[in-house]
């Protein structure tokens, strides 16, 4: 991991994987961090009723989106390991 064995830093294969997966990795990293400021802005309901409705609607649309895409992923029999097997 720190180039101690004299292996290459990068090779075409690594770049290929990086290209394919960088987006999901970044999304993952962002979602691992509590974005307090963004949350505060979104959930601040005292500002206007209209904003409250829009935020609520966006949330619901996001939920529907997640369900649809997840279902597609599951129906597709994609990689879906169950990590709890040894517990």
């Amino acid at each position: 991991m720190f180039n101690l064995n004299g292996i290459n830093f990068v090779n075409p294969e690594a770049m290929y994987y990086l290209n394919n997966y960088i987006v999901i990795i970044i999304i993952g990293i962002i979602c691992s961090i509590p974005l307090k400021k963004v949350k505060e802005k979104l959930l601040d309901n005292t500002k206007s009723k209209k904003k409250e409705i829009i935020v609520g609607l966006l949330g619901s649309i996001a939920c529907v989106f997640i369900v649809i895409v997840s279902t597609a992923s599951l129906v597709n029999n994609s990689f879906n390991p169950f990590l709890y097997f040894r517990f």
Partner: peptide
């Protein structure tokens, strides 16, 4: 294996 790959 490459350094980059192991970090990824």
């Amino acid at each position: 294996m490459t350094v980059l790959l192991s970090w990824i």
